[in-house]
């Protein structure tokens, strides 16, 4: 993946918005990549967690919100435990999800899930998925 980094003053609007929603400063990330290394979902996401943090640091809000990263995150909190900078990355992911969901845009359609799946999964799967992925 290539990251377009514009010349000039970095736009910190998205970092500030994320801080407002989550209380976390994504600007503190030092790009060590530990998060990506321990992320159990990393092979299914594009870009990786570290790369997403880089996008945020460069004010690339469009790319960050369109990325699959936050939507593939399972909120397992492994990165939180391992981050040497102590950044609560799950909260950053939540903030990105919320920036989309608060526009009333669902990422999963509850009525679109196959009937046999709805009947089979435990209630906590439905509650958790709808909390993370519906507006």
């Amino acid at each position: 993946m290539s990251v377009f980094i514009p010349l000039g003053v970095l736009d910190d609007a998205v970092i500030r918005k994320i801080a407002e929603i989550s209380g976390e400063n994504a600007g503190r990330c030092m790009q060590c990549g530990t998060c990506s290394a321990v992320c159990p979902m990393v092979e299914s996401m594009q870009p990786s967690v570290r790369q997403l943090m880089l996008l945020l640091q460069h004010g690339q809000s469009g790319a960050a919100l369109e990325a699959s990263t936050a939507w593939t995150c399972a909120a397992c909190h492994t990165c939180l435990v391992r981050c040497p900078r102590g950044i609560d990355i799950p909260r950053v992911m939540e903030a990105i999800r919320q920036m989309v969901l608060r526009e009333n845009l669902d990422r999963i359609n509850p009525r679109g899930i196959p009937a046999e799946t709805l009947a089979a999964v435990p209630p906590i799967a439905l509650v958790a998925a709808f909390r993370k992925l519906t507006a």
Partner: peptide
Amino acid sequence: GAIVAQLYPEVFR
């Protein structure tokens, strides 16, 4: 409970 999940999954919201 399965029929509730199938007909009205939004209950879990």
